[in-house]
């Protein structure tokens, strides 16, 4: 059985206790997307401000939820700030790969060889989540919400 130390890594708890980029941005110019996890009631609000060159100039995170959903959102915000929207989309793909939710089963190991991505940084601390399949939804919530915000930013 997977131990809780695989899930609750120090860096995850740090992001949970001291969330980065917490707050709101004015819309417009920023776009806002909301994500819900209907099972547990977690809510994430993602604000992104994309400048004319396609760079995410600013990001803010709102909502409430468990340590995994909140820390994942915090790490995500730090990772995408200053990145282009294309880079952010790549990161979404990499992160979902890390969570093994692409075609692969749910046994964490499978994903690792997939697409080594050094820019994952702190985010790789969330790798342990795959051993707790019900928590994958928590970790991925903010990323799906970001994808929605990126879509909205494009159509604006």
């Amino acid at each position: 059985m997977a131990g809780l130390e695989d899930l609750y890594k120090e860096i995850i708890l740090d992001h949970y206790r001291n969330p980065r980029n917490r707050g709101e941005l004015e819309t417009p110019p920023a776009v806002k997307a909301e994500g819900f996890n209907p099972l547990c009631g977690d809510e994430i609000v993602v604000f992104i401000d994309v400048d004319d060159s396609g760079t995410i100039a600013d990001v803010a995170i709102g909502g409430q939820g468990c340590s995994i959903s909140q820390s994942s959102a915090s790490m995500m915000s730090a990772a995408i700030k200053g990145k282009t929207t294309d880079e952010a989309r790549d990161l979404i793909e990499s992160f979902k790969g890390l969570m093994s939710i692409h075609e692969k089963g749910l046994d964490g190991a499978a994903a690792e060889g997939d697409k080594p991505d050094l820019s994952m940084g702190d985010l790789s601390a969330l790798r342990g989540v795959v051993k707790f399949p019900v928590r994958i939804k928590c970790a991925v919530l903010s990323w799906n919400t970001l994808a929605q915000a990126l879509d909205d930013a494009r159509t604006n």
């Binding site: 809780l4 899930l7 609750y8 099972l39 547990c40 468990c66 340590s67 928590r135």
Partner: peptide
Amino acid sequence: HPHDISQVLDQDNVYVRAG
């Protein structure tokens, strides 16, 4: 967070609902 509580309790086979 309740979700974390139920995760921690699960470690001791104590089953409660979070949400």
